[in-house]
């Protein structure tokens, strides 16, 4: 597995135009506003880590980005298109450009690893020959060093393996944007670091941009080009890891004090 360090500046992609523009985004469940005038911009080739306490609405944010949840107010543009106003067909086409790694991996229990990876190609991989599909599946499994797990069922995989297969599955369409929902939660520190390094390697290999939802500071330090701290449904503070760690604000410092 190739490891890319943030200190290796040559490995860093150059940031391009904005691919996600979030402005004054509001989303509530009943009377509870989890997103309350939230703002964020993600540029091409950039990894943005969103930090926040459990249950503060981080996952809700990326579910709004991919159109799984509808927001009530504000604007959320992905690749220049307002997500809430997209028709189902347009949304499906946009989703082909977005990879989503779920917190629980969300592998389809009744399918093998191969079938899990091939599933997205049913809709978006039309015209590909069996050989091309096989090659693609093998490439993705090689990326996560799990080529030998191709015929296993999800129930036969460990937590770390499931995360890696989830990552491989989300990359099968070679998306431009990756959304990671707590990718290292529930893993031991060594596996968590492996996953973080894989995320960086994939960013480098496929030139993806990412929003990474996490409260794992080690993962954030490794993967983030920029961090956004979500508190009370707003983007409370934003900057590089170093900038935020030196910031004189008790709410922000609370995330960094154990580092």
């Amino acid at each position: 597995m190739e490891t890319i360090s943030r200190t290796n500046t040559e490995a860093l992609p150059k940031y391009g135009e904005s691919i996600i523009e979030i402005s004054s985004l509001c989303k509530s469940f009943g009377d509870n506003y989890v997103l309350n005038q939230f703002n964020l911009t993600v540029r091409r080739g950039e990894n943005v880590v969103v930090l926040g306490k459990s249950g503060c609405g981080k996952s809700v944010l990326i579910k709004c980005v991919v159109g799984l949840l509808k927001y009530e107010e504000g604007s959320l543009q992905v690749f220049g298109k307002e997500i809430n106003s997209l028709k189902q067909k347009e949304l499906d086409e946009m989703r082909a450009r977005i990879g989503f790694v779920f917190q629980s991996s969300a592998l389809y229990d009744s399918m093998t690893v191969r079938q899990n990876l091939e599933f997205a190609l049913r809709r978006h991989g039309k015209g590909k020959t069996k050989q091309e599909v096989d090659q693609l599946v093998e490439e993705m499994l090689d990326n996560v060093s799990l080529a030998n797990a191709i015929n296993l069922m999800p129930s036969e995989l460990s937590g770390g393996m499931r995360k890696r297969i989830g990552l491989a599955r989300s990359l099968i369409l070679k998306p431009e944007l990756m959304l990671y929902d707590e990718p290292t939660t529930g893993l031991d520190p060594i596996t968590a670091e492996e996953i973080s390094n894989m995320m960086l390697a994939m960013q480098h290999k496929y030139n993806t941009s990412s929003i990474i939802i996490s409260h794992d500071m080690h993962c954030a330090r490794l993967t983030a080009n920029r961090l956004a701290v979500m508190i009370d449904g707003i983007n409370y503070a934003e900057g590089t890891f170093e900038e935020l760690s030196k910031m004189n604000d008790p709410k922000v410092n609370a995330f960094f004090k154990k580092q």
Binding site: L68, E93, F102, Q103, S104, A106, H124
Partner: peptide, 10 residues
């Protein structure tokens, strides 16, 4: 979240 994963995959 398998149903969400299916939806995200198009």
């Amino acid at each position: 979240e398998q149903i969400d994963a299916m939806e995200v995959s198009g």
